[in-house]
Deep mutational scan, measured.
Amino acid sequence: MQIFVKTLTGKTITLEVEPSDTIENVKAKIQDKEGIPPDQQRLIFNGKQLEDGRTLSDYNIQKDSTLHLVLR
């Protein structure tokens, strides 16, 4: 499925993911596309910070959902 990740600069990254993917996996995909190390990434969905060990389906993230990427 496709999800979107919006950065603070207003750029939107499109990712191909599975609901069973962990947040860690998603961060690795963002690193592949953008070169941002996962330990600098914080992903936010519906105002909640997403934890590495959880999956997209844990957070009820579905296709065409938009996550927000904050760098630390």
Rank of each mutant, 00 (worst) to 15 (best):
M1I: 12
Q2P: 15
Q2T: 07
Q2F: 11
Q2Y: 13
Q2L: 09
Q2M: 13
I3Q: 00
I3V: 10
I3D: 00
I3F: 01
F4L: 04
F4Y: 15
F4S: 02
F4R: 02
F4T: 03
F4H: 03
F4I: 11
V5H: 00
V5N: 00
V5D: 00
V5P: 00
V5G: 01
K6S: 08
T7M: 07
T7R: 13
L8F: 09
L8N: 13
L8I: 11
T9F: 02
G10D: 14
G10I: 03
G10F: 02
G10M: 13
G10Q: 06
K11A: 03
T12F: 10
T12G: 03
T12M: 13
T12Y: 08
I13E: 04
T14D: 10
T14H: 04
T14Q: 08
L15M: 03
L15S: 01
L15N: 00
E16N: 15
E16Y: 03
E16S: 15
E16P: 03
E16T: 12
V17N: 06
V17H: 07
V17F: 04
E18G: 10
E18D: 08
E18F: 11
S20D: 09
S20M: 05
S20I: 11
S20W: 10
D21P: 01
D21K: 06
D21Q: 03
D21S: 08
D21L: 04
D21T: 10
D21E: 15
T22K: 15
T22D: 05
T22E: 12
T22A: 05
T22S: 04
I23Q: 05
I23K: 01
E24Y: 02
E24S: 11
E24R: 12
N25L: 09
N25F: 02
N25S: 12
N25A: 07
N25H: 02
N25R: 14
N25Y: 15
V26I: 13
K27W: 05
K27I: 02
K27H: 02
K27Q: 14
K27V: 08
K27F: 14
A28K: 11
A28H: 11
K29G: 06
K29R: 08
K29A: 15
K29P: 00
K29H: 07
I30S: 02
I30P: 00
I30T: 06
I30K: 00
Q31V: 06
Q31P: 02
Q31K: 13
Q31D: 13
D32Q: 14
D32V: 12
D32S: 07
D32F: 15
K33M: 10
K33W: 14
E34N: 13
E34F: 06
E34V: 15
E34L: 08
G35T: 08
G35P: 05
G35R: 13
I36E: 04
I36Q: 03
I36A: 09
I36L: 04
P37Y: 03
P37D: 14
P37G: 04
P37K: 08
P37V: 12
P37N: 07
P38V: 15
P38L: 05
P38H: 08
P38F: 10
D39Q: 07
D39V: 08
Q40R: 14
Q40I: 14
Q40D: 15
Q41I: 06
Q41T: 02
Q41K: 06
R42G: 07
R42F: 10
R42P: 01
R42T: 07
L43P: 01
I44H: 08
F45S: 05
F45W: 10
F45Y: 13
F45D: 07
F45L: 06
F45P: 00
N46A: 11
N46T: 05
N46F: 13
N46E: 15
G47Y: 11
G47W: 08
G47M: 13
G47Q: 13
K48A: 09
K48T: 05
K48V: 06
Q49W: 02
Q49Y: 14
Q49T: 14
Q49N: 06
Q49L: 14
L50V: 07
L50R: 00
L50T: 12
L50G: 01
L50S: 01
L50F: 03
L50M: 12
L50H: 00
E51F: 08
E51D: 13
E51P: 05
D52Y: 03
D52T: 14
D52M: 05
D52S: 09
D52P: 08
G53L: 05
G53V: 10
G53N: 11
G53S: 09
R54I: 04
R54V: 15
R54K: 02
R54Y: 15
R54T: 07
T55A: 08
T55W: 13
T55M: 13
T55Q: 10
L56M: 06
L56A: 15
S57A: 07
S57K: 12
S57F: 10
S57E: 08
S57Q: 12
D58H: 14
D58L: 04
Y59N: 04
Y59T: 09
Y59S: 06
Y59W: 10
Y59K: 01
N60K: 04
N60L: 04
N60F: 03
N60I: 12
N60D: 06
I61L: 02
I61T: 02
Q62P: 14
Q62A: 08
K63H: 12
K63N: 03
K63T: 03
K63Y: 03
D64H: 13
D64W: 14
D64K: 07
S65T: 10
S65K: 09
S65L: 03
S65H: 05
T66R: 09
T66W: 12
H68A: 15
H68N: 04
H68W: 08
L69S: 01
L69V: 11
L69M: 05
V70K: 05
V70N: 03
V70P: 01
V70L: 14
V70Y: 05
V70H: 11
V70T: 09
L71G: 14
L71K: 14
L71Q: 05
L71D: 13
L71Y: 15
L71S: 04
L71M: 05
R72I: 09
R72D: 14
